[in-house]
Computed example of a mutant assay.
Amino acid sequence: MHIVIIGVGGVGGYFGGKISNSGQKVSLIARGKHLQAIQKNGLHIKSIDGDFVANPFKATDSIDDVEKADLVLICTKSWQVIEAAKLIKPILHKDTIVIPLQNGADNAEKILSVLDHKHVLGGLCKIYSKIEAPGIVSHFGHQPEIVFGELDSSETSRLHLVKKVFDDAGLSSVISQDINADIWKKFMFIATVSGLGALSRATIGEMYHNARLNEILKQTAQEMYKIAIAKQVNLPESIVENIMHFIGKQPYDSTASTQRDIMEGRPSELENFNGFIVKEGERLGILTPVNTFIYSCLQPAEAKARLAKN
Rank of each mutant, 00 (worst) to 15 (best):
E302N: 08
I63C: 10
D95V: 00
K231A: 07
N310M: 15
G10S: 06
T203N: 01
P144M: 03
K218I: 02
G17L: 13
S20M: 09
A169R: 12
I48C: 05
L199N: 08
Q24H: 05
L196P: 00
T203L: 07
N274A: 15
I175N: 03
L35G: 04
V233P: 06
G23I: 09
S22N: 09
F189M: 13
H119D: 00
H2F: 12
Q36C: 06
Q259H: 05
E282S: 07
T255A: 09
D49G: 14
K304N: 04
I45W: 04
A202T: 03
N274I: 11
F52L: 07
I63P: 06
D95E: 14
G7S: 06
S153Q: 14
G23H: 11
V193R: 00
S176A: 12
D253Q: 12
S238D: 14
S138Q: 09
L101G: 06
L213Y: 10
G9T: 04
S173V: 12
I74K: 05
D168A: 14
T156I: 13
N234Q: 13
Q143E: 14
I97M: 03
Q36E: 15
N272M: 15
S22Y: 07
A108D: 04
K94S: 13
G149Q: 05
F189V: 13
T192Y: 05
R212G: 00
A230K: 12
V162L: 08
G9D: 09
D49A: 15
Q39K: 15
L161I: 10
A198N: 09
C75D: 00
L298C: 08
A230L: 04
E150Y: 09
A30R: 03
M263K: 07
